[in-house]
């Protein structure tokens, strides 16, 4: 029972964090038509910026300033990089974001060193929030949960309830029509790219200290975010949300299961000491999202909620 409660809590928090990353990516995808390989790099930038700002001032300031800075970097990348490359088609854009990811990683290595930086959680939140079944649950994780829910509500409100959101949605699917109506479509695109990057930056700010802030964090997070976007259905925010929570729960629950293949497939006569029978579900946890990706592409190529096939 306690395993289920904790896996639920941790799974939802991790899932919401994934959504923070993938919502930006999926918005940008709808806009550009290609996956932004550098998206997880903005997540990393968020963590490093927050580390620097926290060192100089406080975590609370970093919480606001770091995502804005990352958003500005994103906007600059869109305005002076992607927009120029766009003229040369999708392949050029894809390669551009691919190169950008490496560039950002190398710059981070030069500026901050090759090993992890000591980005700590604020001492104000460094206490157990509550204790259930003999294990305490850190307050900072609850804080992450609230920030993520706040972001979710904010994004939903912006896109669905405001006029700006209406124009953004229209511009994503029918840019020419929106342009003819007199809106500045390139500006909208730049803003969307900036907001997407800022969301990734925010995820970095709140996750960098609970996980690890090092130059490899983008490379580790990137593939999972792609899985979320593809499983959720390219371009669908609702799908990305479902897929994020699904993958968050899947990974956390899998770690908690000690059953081995021999236990599950006992009817095939698989021996628990054999190479395959010895594999436990928990050791497979890191692979499960990718298994889901492969299965999804085979059986439902448009993803959970996507409207178009890949």
């Amino acid at each position: 029972m306690e395993t289920i409660v904790f896996a639920l809590l941790n799974g939802v928090i991790y899932g919401l964090l994934l959504f923070m990353l993938s919502s930006g990516l999926t918005l940008i995808f709808s806009m550009m038509g290609v996956l932004n390989f550098a998206h997880a790099s903005f997540y990393m930038l968020g963590a490093y910026f927050a580390y620097t700002i926290m060192g100089a001032t406080s975590f609370w300031l970093a919480l606001f300033i770091a995502p804005i800075l990352v958003g500005l970097v994103g906007a600059v990348v869109e305005r002076y990089g992607l927009r120029k490359v766009h003229a040369n088609g999708h392949v050029a854009e894809l390669l551009f974001t691919f190169g950008l990811a490496y560039l950002i990683e190398e710059i981070v290595k030069i500026v901050y060193g090759k090993t992890a930086v000591d980005y700590k959680i604020p001492s104000l939140l460094d206490f157990p929030a509550f204790t259930i079944y003999g294990a305490s649950f850190p307050a900072y994780r609850m804080f992450m949960l609230f920030i993520a829910i706040g972001m979710l509500v904010g994004l939903w409100f912006l896109l669905k309830k405001t006029r700006a959101g209406l124009i953004i949605q229209a511009a994503l699917t029918h840019p020419h029509m929106v342009g003819h109506l007199g809106h500045n479509v390139p500006l909208i695109f730049m803003t969307v790219f900036g907001i997407g990057c800022a969301l990734a930056g925010l995820a970095g700010v709140i996750a960098g200290n609970i996980f690890v802030t090092d130059p490899a964090m983008a490379v580790l997070m990137g593939p999972i975010v792609f899985v979320v976007v593809v499983v959720g259905g390219i371009g669908s925010l609702e799908g990305a949300f479902l897929a994020s929570i699904l993958i968050g729960l899947l990974q956390n629950f899998a770690v908690g299961i000690s059953a081995s293949f021999a236990d599950i497939f006992w009817f095939t006569g698989l021996s628990p000491t054999s190479e395959i029978g010895d594999i436990t579900v928990s050791s497979l946890a890191p692979v499960l999202p990718f298994l889901l990706l492969v299965l999804m592409l085979i059986f439902r190529p448009r993803g959970l909620m996507g409207e178009q096939e890949l």
């Binding site: 306690e2 395993t3 904790f6 896996a7 941790n10 991790y14 079944y133 003999g134 294990a135 609970i210 996980f211 690890v212 964090m217 580790l220 990974q251 956390n252 770690v255 908690g256 000690s258 436990t280 928990s282 050791s283 890191p286």
Partner: peptide, 22 residues
């Protein structure tokens, strides 16, 4: 319990700790 996790890939050991406690 006899648990092996991937080398250098796990960033959050909370689920493992949970398992140890339970």
């Amino acid at each position: 319990g006899n648990e092996l996790h991937p080398l250098g890939k796990v960033k959050d050991f909370t689920p493992y700790i949970q398992k140890i406690i339970s």
